[in-house]
């Protein structure tokens, strides 16, 4: 009896051992053959990233960002929205690079063509995606530059910082949630959304229109279009405003948030956000 048992045990041990041995050799050979040599710094950078894998940097997760950063050997053009500049500073320190000061930014919608201001002239009835609507026609409001209102930007936002306002048909950006990842900027087929400086106390002034058509044409479609009249240009003492192709643009680097230009705009195309309420103005400036 014992002999048989011994035999079985011996046989098992030998055969399993042999299989194990062969498998180990194969594994070793395969591992040698398909060896991947990785830069150890990638792991180092990944450690420092928040591991949220949100894709806010525009890459597929934190590992991908780490790989990209190490490959580029610099932090230029990379941004980790949830981590902010602190994380970038840490990475720079660890890598021994210089970290540029990052100014806090925020996404700004440069269109105010609400259903009321740019009433729909036609009805859109196709896939609810701006990419297709843009290829199909100028938009329900008729403005070939304006927001199409299908909400591709909202879908692109991974931080719940945007929603579509059903009343106006325009997306709304939430100041406290936007991390300036610029996913919406990339998604918008009409390049309406711009990354602008967040400003002191989240205050910002911008031209809420990107229509380059002639004033009359633009106004026909939308009551709050920039008509390129240039009044704001004359008002600005800091050369922050430029006028090109019938469209005024405020340079956020030069703008001092003096609030002089919004009241002079005849179409109310210049928006000011998060400022205290103005004192009652004389009737003539409010008009038109």
């Amino acid at each position: 009896m014992n002999e048989i048992l011994n035999e079985i045990t011996l046989f098992s041990v030998v055969s399993l051992g042999a299989i194990g041995g062969v498998a180990a050799i194969i594994l070793f050979l395969v591992a040698q053959k398909f060896k991947v040599i990785e830069d150890p710094r990638i792991d180092q950078v990944e450690e420092l990233l928040p591991a949220a894998n949100c894709g806010g940097c525009g890459l597929a997760g934190c590992r991908a960002l780490a790989e990209a950063i190490v490959k580029a050997e610099s932090l230029e053009g990379f941004n980790c929205p949830p981590g902010g500049s602190d994380v970038m500073q840490d990475i720079a320190k660890a890598m021994g690079w210089e970290a540029g000061e990052t100014t806090p930014m925020i996404a700004v919608l440069r269109c105010n063509g609400t259903r009321e201001q740019a009433p729909p002239k036609v009805r859109y009835d196709s896939a609810m995606t701006c990419a297709f609507a843009h290829a199909l026609f100028a938009g329900e409001g008729g403005c070939p530059y304006g927001c199409l209102g299908c909400g591709d930007c909202v879908l692109a936002c991974s931080f719940d910082a945007m929603y579509m306002d059903k009343e106006t048909g325009l997306p709304v950006i939430l100041d406290d949630k936007c991390v300036a990842c610029a996913a919406c900027v990339k998604e918008c087929p009409r390049n309406i959304i711009e990354m602008r400086k967040k400003g002191k106390k989240d205050r910002r002034i911008f031209v809420s229109c990107i229509n380059e058509e002639k004033g009359g044409v633009a106004r026909k479609n939308c009551k709050v279009a920039c008509i390129g009249c240039g009044k704001c240009l004359k008002e600005c003492k800091f050369d922050a405003i430029t006028l090109e192709n019938n469209l005024a643009y405020i340079d956020f680097e030069k703008c001092t948030l003096c609030r002089k230009c919004p009241p002079v705009c005849p179409t109310n195309a210049i928006h000011e956000l998060n400022f205290p309420v103005r004192k009652q103005k004389p009737a003539e400036t409010v008009e038109s």
Binding site: S126, A127, T129, A131, F132, A135
Partner: peptide, 13 residues
């Protein structure tokens, strides 16, 4: 399903 609408977007991209 707006199949062709999506395919057109895909073709453009």
């Amino acid at each position: 399903k707006p199949l062709l609408d999506h395919i057109r977007v895909g073709k453009t991209r």
